[in-house]
Structures are given as C-alpha cells and as structure tokens.
Design a protein around this nucleic acid. Structure first.
Lengths: 335, 335
DNA sequence: TATTGTCTTGGAAACGTTTACATTTTTCAG
DNA sequence: CTGAAAAATGTAAACGTTTCCAAGACAATA
C-alpha cells in the first residue's frame, strides 16, 4: 500500500495525497477528509526511506553516548527517551568506544543517518575544538560545558562541576573533617575530572585547609572498580583521613566497599561522599550522601535547547543546571 | 558524493560501482581496486535510504525492550550492543510502555523500519499467541521461553525460571531455613513470576516444607520499591521468617533496605536471596547472594539464533541457558 | 465583461540506489 | 581461426516519496 495506491483509490493525484499526509495547506476539506479516511481504513504506512531519500534529511534525534559504563548516562538516556517517545522524532542511540573520538564518529553518523540534531552524552572539549566544524546539524553537549567553544550549532547543558566539587568538600568541612581524601578520574582525558579537581582545590583554599598531595588519587576512570582500587591504594599510604570524596557515585560505592573490606566503618570511621545522584546511591547501605545533578533537568533542558536550534535555527546557548547536595547516611559529623 | 559521482570519476558505470560496493562477483580486480580507492579517498558514504528504498528491507536489528525499569535488560542491551557494534547490522532500540502490547507495537515498527530481525526483551506469551502472525521477520524472545508457541519465525532464549527459583529455595533450605518468605512480581502479567513461583512451590514440596500462604507476597512489579514495600508488608504480618527470596535482585535490595529499616540485620537475622545476577548486587552491603542468569550468555545465544534465522532461514529454536548460584554475603546458615 | 488574484489540483521530475537485462570483451576448446 | 560460453561492463527502469510548476476553477475587482 503506497501513496500511489491511495491516490488511485481516492481518485486524487499523488501531489494532493502527499499534501494531505503532510498537513500542508492548499487542500480542500473534502479532499483531506476522503484521503485521510482511506489511509486510515487501509492501514497505510508511509515509507520513511522514500521520504528521507527525497528530503535529504532524516527525522530522528541521534544520541551519541561515550562508553557503556556510565550509569549517569544510562539514567539520562532513559529520561530523554521517555520525553521523546511518541513524538515525531524517534531517538537513535549510538554507543561509542571510550577512546574513540566522538566528534569524528558523529560526522560519520550524521552523513549516514542525517539526523535532525545530535546529543552528545559526554565528550572531550579538545575533540570538539578540532573536529566539530564538519557537522552541520545542531548539537548539544550534555553534562559538559562547551561555553568556551564558539560554534553556533553547538550548545551545551551541564552542571557547574567546579561548584559541585566545592559543595561536596564544604559539606565535609562543615561536618568537622580536615583530612579529606579526593579520588577521581583522569584529569587529562576528562573535563569533568579537571573541573571537579579545581573545585576541590578552591574549596580547600577557601577553608584554609592545606591539601596534602598524598590524599589525592587520580585514576583512569570513574568506575566502581577504579573507586575500589583508589581507596585501597590510599589506605596503603598510611595517611590518616576521616573523609573521602569520590567524583562519581559508583566510585564512591567502590570506595565504601574497599573501606569495609579494610575494616573501616562508613560513616563512623570515614565519611564518604559521591557526586551524581544516581538511583543506586539509594540502594547502598549506608545510603550515599552525594551532590545531585538532576537527571530530569539535564534531559529536559538539553532536549529543549536542541528543539530550539532545530526549529528556529536559533544559535548556540550554554546552560548550567542547578545542583543540590543530598545529605544521607554515608557522612556524619566527626567525633 | 554519490555512487554516480564515483562512476563519473572513475569512468566506470553505475552498475559496476554498485557491484564493487556490494562485494559482488563479475567485477575485474582492476575495477574493484580503482573504485574502492576512489571511494576511500573521496570519503564516499552510501545513502542507506536509497538502498533500503530499493531493496525493500533495512539492514538493522531491532530490539524491543519492555519498560525502562529493568536493570537486567539494561545490562543485556549493553552486552548485545557490544557484540553488534562495528558489524554490518546496526542495533536500534525501542522502549515500549509496560502495559503496551509489545507484539502489536512490533508489527507497526517492522512495517516502518523493515529490520532484518527483531529481539524482544521481555514479553508476554499471550500477546505472542494472539498477534504474532503479522510479523514476517525472524524474531527471538529473550529471557522468556516461547517453546509452547509454534511459529517458525519465533525463537527464544531463556533460563529455566522454574529451576532458578528452585535453586534459590534449595540453597536457603540447605542453610537450615524453614520459614522462607517469597516475594515476586505479578503472576498474572509476568510469565517469569508465574514460573518462578511454581519453582518455589516445587522446591518446598520436595523439601517437605509446607508453604505458608502468609509468607507469599505478590506485588505488581519487580522493582526496588516493590521489594521494599513487600518486605515491609510481610514484617507487619508478624509471621516469623528467617529467610527471604526475592524474584529479582533489585527487589531483594529493596527488601534488604526494608529489613534494615525495621531493625533486622541481613544476614544475621534474615538471609536474603535475589535472582538475576546484576552488577549492582556486588555494590550492596552485604553483597547479594543470587541466582545468576549470565547476561553474556543470553546476549550471545540470542544474537546467534537470530543470525541463523536471518541467514539460513533456519526455523525456530528454543534455547535454555544455564544458570548458576552465586553465594555471597546476604545469606548464612541459620543459627 | 475582462482582468486579476487566490485556492485547489494534476503532472512530472527528482532523490541515490539496486538489479534485470543487454551489450561488449575475453577466454578457450575444437 | 572460429564460435561459443563466460566474464565484465553498461543501460535503464524501478523503489515511494516530495516538491516545483503549470493549469484549472472560481471569486472579486475594475
């Protein structure tokens, strides 16, 4: 059943049928009604390949997600999907490898799929600086600011990483902690790690705490295992500490496990903080105190920004969504 | 840059270029080489819309995932995606609503996207029985057996749900438990819940334990919150129990939280078992004892089955993948 | 009535492939 | 050499839309 059959069946021409199906003007009420009914009755289904071939652009939103191993992205994706479902623009997700250049990959995918717009979940500033110009579609970089980049089809939505780390450290300081350990991902490859680390340093300075280099642990990634090993390594350094800040929730959970395995209780012996606000933070015992980046907010704003760029051809915009500190059970006032 | 440009550029005809690009025979080595190089150099990208329009079928694998809220499916999807990445058949994922009919949705999606094959993540036997015939593509139903259904384009890969539940109960019994609580999702809407419940009953019978109806709690879903409320409700019934079996890991984790909140220690006061073998079971304190459905296995086998059906037009096949019991910290011998 | 403009419709050319068929070239047995 | 089969290549028609342009119908204006 094609548009042609529909035309033959109703006695109208191809052009008219197409106009009806696309809700275009210049069609009489009568024609619209007849054709719509015929389409309904025959279970007509438009061939999107033909449509896209002709129009030279697809109808979907493409999400490019760096690595499978990021729980925050998982939650974000779920939230984005929920918002987009049922709408006119289906979501396509492509996972790419950790050490692949996401922008280069994007230009390839854009050429092939011709999406209306693309959402980058995670991404490295440097890669954008180098390879972005080849992309014509509006894009938004989520969870990482692109404010320093000046491409007028690149927007971004992120939380203030510096502030987030600051809030975490300040919270620990307010609870009386002075010897605070920091663990995070690679500051060389991750913008987030770099910014959060800066936040930590600023917080320490503002609180007049001299930060012991020995209490800093930089690992390659933000995973559970990385957190576990980091905490373990820190314990082996034999420096006393009463609190630990991990730059991601899963890392914090790994760290808690390592502390437990070493006979330390959380929060009695060591207070632990995470950053992200994942659902699983609620599952752990004790519940994880963390700095929350609201996933719903992030999803909502990034989609909204993308929509703006697509519809109005409005230009780039860089948003910061608010973060909140959620104090739960893994931190306590120092004894 | 189209195939036509490539033809003009190399001096060959459209047909020859197309044959080269599709690795078809009847092309001279020389032509193949020249054309391939030209394609490489010019960064040529085939227009998949044109291709699919002509061929009348797409090239992708479609995964239809029932509900966003299933961690097992998330892990499965990651594993499937990893296997499929880089191959000739991209994966498209569509999440559908909990109470939508997945098969009806599938026929719609198949009409539109014309995938090579479809993977159902979760699904209700009844829906298949009713609406499946309209689907022409090979399909495989994952994590739920379709052995009772006789469509020769429907295969399935699952673990033995009855056995899984049996193993869990037996393990608890072997640890000396007699008063065992069972919580699970709706047996009316979920095949898994029904089968696992049957497994429990059989295990109890085989172990000569009379199962107290008051120790059974059927909730609507398999979530953390459902687990939490179920455990809470069971505690309020004031029946003594020393062990709890939840039909999913997240439920078990919710139950542990409820027990903790009520002042019960796990595993000292109550042993808790889950079923699934999710990664997050490792994150909890105590680590969750569970019956593991190997995600890698499930992914591997389902993809293999689908591939067979697509390539050889081989017919339906129903596989059971082995499960294993992973004893960790949330269960212990009764005191 | 003649002229203009607006609304509705029909017709046909694209979009970039694949593929069946036609044609040319090569190979090789007799 | 000849002729025929096989291999390589070219040609053109599809696939199902959208969209531009032309044309017809009708009303309003001069």
């Amino acid at each position: 059943m094609t548009i042609k059959d529909l035309a033959a069946q109703t006695g109208y021409s191809l052009g008219t049928v197409s106009r009806v199906l696309n809700h275009q003007p210049h069609v009489s009420e009568q024609a619209r009604e007849i054709i719509l009914r015929a389409a309904e009755e025959s279970g007509f289904q438009l061939n999107s390949n033909a449509k896209q071939l002709k129009q030279q652009h697809g109808t979907s939103i493409l999400a490019i997600c760096k690595s499978h191993q990021n729980e925050l992205f998982d939650e974000l994706l779920v939230s984005i999907q929920a918002r987009i479902a049922g709408g006119p623009h289906p979501l396509t997700v492509d996972y790419i490898d950790e050490n692949e250049n996401e922008v280069q990959r994007a230009v390839q995918l854009c050429r092939e799929k011709k999406p209306l717009g693309v959402l980058f979940l995670g991404g490295n500033q440097e890669n954008f600086r180098k390879d972005f110009p080849k992309i014509e579609q509006p894009c938004v970089l989520v969870t990482s600011s692109a404010a320093e980049l000046s491409f007028d089809n690149l927007s971004s939505v992120s939380s203030d990483d510096v502030l987030a780390a600051k809030m975490a450290i300040r919270h620990l300081v307010e609870l009386g902690h002075r010897k605070i350990v920091v663990i995070g991902g690679s500051r060389q490859t991750s913008d987030a790690a770099r910014l959060r680390y800066r936040g930590c340093l600023e917080a320490f300075r503002e609180c007049d705490i001299s930060f012991d280099e020995e209490l800093d642990y930089e690992t390659s990634r933000f995973t559970y295992l990385a957190g576990y090993h980091a905490a373990q390594a820190l314990l082996e350094r034999n420096r006393a500490f009463t609190a630990l800040f991990a730059m991601s929730d899963v890392m914090a959970i790994g760290a808690i496990r390592a502390l437990n395995d070493a006979g330390k209780r959380v929060p009695e012996d060591v207070s632990v903080m995470g950053l992200d606000g994942l659902t699983i933070g609620e599952y752990t015992v004790p519940r994880l105190t963390t700095v929350v980046q609201d996933v719903e907010d992030l999803a909502e704003r990034s989609l909204e920004l993308l929509r703006c760029c697509i519809e109005d051809r409005g230009s780039a915009c860089h948003e910061i969504v608010p973060i909140t500190l959620q104090s739960k059970e893994s931190t306590q006032r120092i004894r």
